[in-house]
Structure formats: structure tokens, C-alpha cells
Design a protein around this nucleic acid. Structure first.
Lengths: 235, 235
DNA sequence: ACCAGTCTGAAACATACGTTTGAATCTTGC
DNA sequence: GCAAGATTCAAACGTATGTTTCAGACTGGT
């Protein structure tokens, strides 16, 4: 019997099963290898620049496998997202100590995001993918924004709002969050160019830590001053 | 007689003329319309996502014209770059008052870059194109980095170095420049996503000015403090 | 008026991509 | 052990893209 997977491309009739609610037995080897390879490639090149042939070559699977297991390139992409979002959510919850000072949390968030540049771990794929989505949106944009970007963004809004003593949706709060995110994004996006402009830059652990510290210092200098201003009742 | 244009793809034999040193007569209409249309499309979608059919449709030219005049898509791309770089250089030189206080110059640079988001003028194409190049490098990457990115980057290094009283190539100076550029890039790159996260955001002139002011404030708050530190002889 | 040389046009070409096909192979329950 | 279903495989398909072709239109000099 065919698996009753979650439909990914409802408008298109698909003869074969797609998606899988839970592994029925032990044999999910090809499927998992595809997800693993696809995560790497999608995170590195983005959706459009990635070819399914590259993914199947990397995973050692046959090219028809992606269609069989996921209904197509887009289905595989969405499944990669789903999985990495889930993985990221679990260790985002217990990693951040909500009782820590807001400034420490912010520094931790910055460092965590930068980490995903140096060592692209599985749970960090979704962030790199989201960043690619910024530049070239895919049909999955709405899903990604709502499931990946928005939670991060609103957590940052709330966090920064707490630091500068303003509501999360205040324009100044938003501008500050954009400034912080921008500083991180440039390292994730601008790899090839930044290397040429700054040849000594190597994303070793030690340097990543220095960059994270800089972004924290750079941002908090303004945020602290903004906190003083808004507590004085200005603007 | 065929024009003796600058060779763009030396490895490939091209039967027809490419490039053009100077317009021989008045009739450069198709060529110029192609450049105009290509500039818009490349700046908006980047090199890879742009199709030559979209360019020729927009310019009203025939699809063979791009190959005839520029030797191919890549040749057209490079020519767009050359032209916009030249245009940008002339009005960058006389626009910036070198005797103004460094802080004012920095604010002017930030505003100028942000402007190119709201109203993509011809001389600003190269900046948007460079930004796309960050994410998905093309064969023209080296040329672009050297001719477009590096001048901007090193001007910023020198400028920021002057503000914080450190050498341009100091690591701290570079980190600050990256922070400033990142804050700008996020608005240029993240259009579709940012709109969803912040629906009220509309890149009207007035809002662009507010954003530019924010980035200036945000950055200068740190830079001023860093200036004090380094004049004290710290790190 | 002619003609070499320049430019334009519609159509075809070659390639790379995502996708589909149908047979072959492997797994599993009985 | 076997049959039915699940999975894999090589090959082909349809489409979109950049490129090329070549015939024709245009242009300026004589």
C-alpha cells in the first residue's frame, strides 16, 4: 500500500507516495541520505542554484528517488525545512536561559547565528536557507517566513524591546533588530566577496568569536544609550 | 568591416562584433536600449535569475541582438557593469565633499546607498548588482570586486579608520565597516521577506531618510566610543 | 542607383534542468 | 517460497535557457 504522505504540490497529480509520517521500519536509508545531502546543498547554494542531480550525486541515490520520496525538488526542499526547523526548535528552547540578562541572551543569539556559518550543523541549515530565501524567494517563501524567520524576528523584537525599554513593534525597535540582523547576514551571505576583500579572514572558531563579540559590542553600545533615552521619556 | 571590440569571452570564437569603443554614428539605439533594460533587470534579479528573453522583451529588441552587440549574456552583463561603474565614479567624485567632517561623509554614504533601493537610478545599478554578486557569484566576480566593491570598501575603511583613529586595515576597523555595510545590505536584499515581517514598511523617501538616520546613529554611537578608546591607547 | 557593410528578424539549435516512465530488484507478510 | 507491494535504476521526455544561423532590411558613400 502506498504511504499516505502530506501533499506538497496539491495541484499536481502524483502517482507515487510523497512524504512520510513516520518511518515504518528500519529502511529509510535513501530518503534520509537525500535529506542529508539536500540540506547541505540547499544551505550552501540556495534553492534555485541547487540541482537535483547534484543532490542525488552527493547522496549516491538515483535521480528518480527525489521524485519518488518527495514528489519533486520543491517537496524535498520543504521537507528539509520542516526537519531542520523542528530540530532547531528543540535545542533553541532549552539552550536559551530565559532568566539571563537580555544583553547576554542577545550576545548568545548573535554567536549562535554566526556559528552556523563556520560549522554548518544540521539544525542550523534553516537559517542559511532562510538567508538565501531573502535574496531569491521560492514558492515556499510564505511557509519559511512564518515558520522560520518570524519566530526569530519576533524573539529579537521582544528581546531588543526589553533592552531599550520600548514596545516590540515600535519602529525604533524594528530598526535596531534590522541593524543587528544585517550585521550577521553580511557574514553569511558575503563569503566569497569578503574573502577577496579581506584575505586574512578565515572563519575559524576563534575569529567567529571575535566577530560575535564585535557585533554584540557594536549593537549594545547603541542599545544602552537608546535605553537611557527612552527611559527619560524621549521619542 | 567588423568593429574591433574588446574581447569578452576569449576562449570562444565569435563571428560577430562585440563591444564598441565609441559610437561611430548616431545609430546605437538598439544597443543602448539593451543596456538600459539589462541594467534594470540585472539590478533587480541578479545575473543568474535574469533571462535574455526578459531583457530583449523589455527593450523591444530581437533576441539575437544581445549576441550581436555583446557576444552573449555575460558580455552584456559586463558591459552594464562597466558603464554603471563609470557613471558612478564621476558623480561619486564631485558629490562627496572631502573636507566635510568624516561623520557627515559617512552619513551621506549610507543615505546614498539606501537611496538606490527606493529609486534605482542608473548610476546606482552597480551597487545592487554587486549585492547580488555577494550571494551568487558569476564569472565576472573578480572584475566586480576589484572595480566596484573594493573602491567602496576601501573608501569606507579609510573613512571609518579616520573616525575611530585606527589604521584602515586594522581588524577593528574592518569589523566596523562590515557592520555598517551589513545594516545597509539587509534592506537591499531582504525586500520580499522584510515586507512580510513588517507590513507597514514602505520604502518611501521619508522612510528611507529615517532608516538612513537610524543606521548613522546606530553606527556612530559605537564609532565615537571606539574613537575615545583608541585615542586612550587601548587595543 | 547601386552595393558593401551594418544591423535586425524569425526560426532553429544545443544543452541543462526537473520530471516521468516502465522494467528490474529488493522487502515483507503469510 | 512466493507473491504483492515498496524501492531502485537507466533511459527518455518536455521545457526553458543561451546561443547560433542565415536571409532580409537598412544605411551611407560614390
Amino acid at each position: 500500500m502506498f504511504q499516505t504522505g502530506v501533499s506538497v504540490a496539491p495541484s499536481k497529480r502524483i502517482r507515487r507516495p510523497i512524504g512520510r509520517v513516520s518511518e515504518p521500519r528500519a529502511a529509510a536509508s535513501t530518503r534520509e541520505r537525500l535529506l542529508e545531502a539536500a540540506g547541505h546543498v540547499f544551505a550552501e547554494h540556495g534553492y534555485h542554484a541547487t540541482t537535483v542531480r547534484e543532490i542525488v550525486k552527493r547522496s549516491g541515490a538515483n535521480i528518480a528517488a527525489v521524485n519518488y520520496h518527495f514528489g519533486g525538488k520543491l517537496g524535498l526542499y520543504i521537507e528539509v525545512l520542516r526537519q531542520s526547523v523542528r530540530a532547531a526548535r528543540v535545542n533553541a528552547i532549552d539552550a536559551l536561559d530565559q532568566n539571563a540578562p537580555p544583553e547576554d541572551i542577545l550576545r548568545a543569539v548573535i554567536r549562535a547565528r554566526l556559528q552556523s556559518v563556520a560549522q554548518p550543523n544540521l539544525p542550523d541549515w534553516h537559517f542559511r536557507i532562510m538567508v538565501h530565501e531573502l535574496v531569491q524567494p521560492t514558492p515556499a517563501l510564505s511557509r519559511i517566513v512564518n515558520e522560520v524567520t518570524r519566530p526569530i524576528y519576533e524573539r529579537l523584537l521582544e528581546l531588543v524591546g526589553r533592552i531599550i525599554d520600548l514596545p516590540p513593534k515600535n519602529e525604533k525597535t524594528r530598526l535596531c533588530v534590522n541593524s543587528i540582523m544585517g550585521q550577521i547576514l553580511v557574514y553569511i551571505l558575503a563569503g566569497p566577496v569578503l574573502m577577496r576583500l579581506w584575505p586574512e579572514l578565515e572563519m575559524k572558531q576563534e575569529q567567529v568569536d571575535r566577530i560575535a563579540k564585535h557585533i554584540g559590542d557594536f549593537s549594545l553600545t547603541y542599545l544602552r544609550q537608546a535605553a537611557v533615552s527612552s527611559r527619560r521619556g524621549e521619542k
